[in-house]
Nucleic acid binder design. Sequence first.
DNA 1: TCAATGTTTAGGCAAATGTCTAAATAAAAC
DNA 2: GTTTTATTTAGACATTTGCCTAAACATTGA
Lengths: 84, 84
Amino acid sequence: MNALFKALNDPTRRAILERLRNGPATAGAIAEQFQFSAPTISHHLDLLRQADLVTSQKQGQFVVYTLNMTVFDELLGWLYQFKS
Amino acid sequence: MNALFKALNDPTRRAILERLRNGPATAGAIAEQFQFSAPTISHHLDLLRQADLVTSQKQGQFVVYTLNMTVFDELLGWLYQFKS
DNA sequence: TCAATGTTTAGGCAAATGTCTAAATAAAAC
DNA sequence: GTTTTATTTAGACATTTGCCTAAACATTGA
């Protein structure tokens, strides 16, 4: 839960998630969309992975990142307790 | 959106929100539940207010904090785009 | 094998964060 | 009117965060 909220608490990381809504992408393709350096984006991706918001698979020299939506259910569950 | 995620990215603040699920409470009553100083809790309450997650009304020498659930809809809306 | 490409790791730095104590403000009680 | 009670503001400090550059690692291609 901590890692989840931490990962979401950054506009760049949220933008990465929105980018991945359109389908998986390599680290490089993701980094191209932003004005930050590749290491910076790599670090953001690491935090997203720690929160289980994305998964990564190595494909040759590329690393493909994929959105993992199942963890959103945890967040929805947390929110739901406030809606009653 | 930034203030919202920022406010949620702290276990103490989330615990305050859960506390307020049971109804409004004064700053002092909230502070009693935690091991932090009153100024620290006051600061947390300020961040929650900035995110519009709580409202505050002064009642005599007390300040009563109330959960504001309407802002959760914004968060639900953001989440929803990922569920399709 | 050597060079190029894609990504991560390491280390450094400024800014933001979470905590504290001390002081200020405001209302209540004596 | 002075003291107590409730809360916030101010300022300090250690830790975390987000960024960078340089270097390392891993794979592909000549």
